[in-house]
């Protein structure tokens, strides 16, 4: 009884907060600064460098949104959020948008009253093992000890996977990625499991990277994307279409370097609409007509962001895989810009 009263109060307060903050776009414009909920530090996706500037794949999306709304990609304040505080920070209005490798799930989308507006990275849980273990598939891991971070969805996925395949394992629980890496290298576990992007980053920094392989099985779907509050559809549209603008830019070959030139010379009608040369797409959602051009000019197109932070050529060296454009066999697909 008491609990329900309490939860009711919280829910009521949330609704009040939500109602009062219906115009996130206006708030951001009035403030002159976008507040972006970010990770407390995740290699390649969002972390401050030695001089305190935030860099990473998720960070660049925040900068693109800031450039679209405010015309300047540097007008972002990054608020580090932990796994526990991230959704409350968004619900309570402490941050405008959360771009923090959060998995889109049913209950988060509905119960928590959040909207996942896009998927900027398709991830999935994988396994890493030492080469001399002689294993080439996760199904051969019968009886293995597995390092796993506690309190994550990966723990549940792991249990499901081994149960479905009728094989057994011994979990070695660890608190975070650095501890997992240490335990794994010290031989406390045969395999380390987490999101495949995280495995790749860990493997890249190991002293003997060649002695470790990432197994081909991906045992879960982890669509990661930007999140906004329920009930502010206009702001959701702004975030969603800024992201799609970056995708369309890659599809059409618009880059950070040639965006001005394309705006001047392109004869493609969709490109002209996207860059604000013709039509009035920006003002329809409360932005400048040059909003998406600014976003692309600030951070580049989706492919450029990927290549600069996590793609092949960086130390993390992730292949595009599922995150390739739909024209190249991936899942990244933007609806038509008209």
């Amino acid at each position: 009884m008491k609990k329900s009263v309490f939860l009711g109060t919280v829910a009521g307060a949330t609704m009040l907060a939500g109602a009062a903050m219906a115009g996130t776009l206006d708030d951001v414009k009035a403030r002159g600064e976008l507040i972006c909920g970010s990770n407390t530090g995740l290699t390649g996706f969002g972390t401050p460098d030695a001089s305190g500037n935030w860099v990473g794949f998720d960070v660049d999306l925040c900068r693109a949104i800031a450039a679209a709304v405010l015309g300047d990609g540097s007008k972002v304040k990054f608020v580090p959020t932990t796994g526990e505080t991230r959704f409350t920070a968004l619900q309570s209005g402490e941050v405008d948008v959360l771009v923090r490798n959060s998995t889109w799930t049913f209950s988060r989308d509905t119960e928590l009253a959040l909207d996942f507006v896009a998927v900027n990275y398709y991830d999935g849980q994988g396994f890493m093992v030492k080469k001399d273990l002689g294993v080439s598939s996760a199904k051969e891991l019968d009886g293995a000890t597995v390092c796993i971070q506690t309190g994550t969805t990966t723990e549940l996925n792991l249990a499901d996977f081994f149960k479905q395949n009728n094989i057994s394992y011994t979990p070695v629980t660890v608190a975070d990625d650095s501890e997992a890496q240490r335990q794994y290298l010290a031989g406390a576990c045969d395999a380390y499991t987490t999101d495949a992007s995280g495995l790749a980053a860990s493997r890249a920094t190991m002293p003997d990277a060649d002695n470790h392989i990432i197994l081909p099985e991906i045992i879960s779907k982890e669509p990661l994307g930007p999140v906004v509050r329920h009930g502010d559809s206009n702001w959701g549209d702004v975030v969603r279409w800024t992201y799609y603008a970056l995708l369309i830019a890659e599809e059409k070959g618009i880059t950070k370097a040639n965006v001005e030139e394309m705006a001047g010379s392109s004869t493609d009608e969709e490109v002209k609409r996207l860059l604000g040369v013709s039509g009035d797409m920006g003002p329809k959602i409360g932005l400048d007509n040059a909003a998406f051009k600014n976003a692309i000019a600030a951070v580049g197109n989706y492919g450029e962001i990927f290549a600069a932070n996590i793609g092949e050529g960086t130390t993390i060296n992730l292949a595009r895989g599922l995150n390739a454009l739909w024209t190249q066999g991936g899942l990244q697909y933007a609806p038509p810009f008209r």
Partner: peptide, 15 residues
Amino acid sequence: GVTQIVRADMNWKGI
């Protein structure tokens, strides 16, 4: 906090 951001840097990951 700071240890985590330092470790998230590709140069120092694994320290």
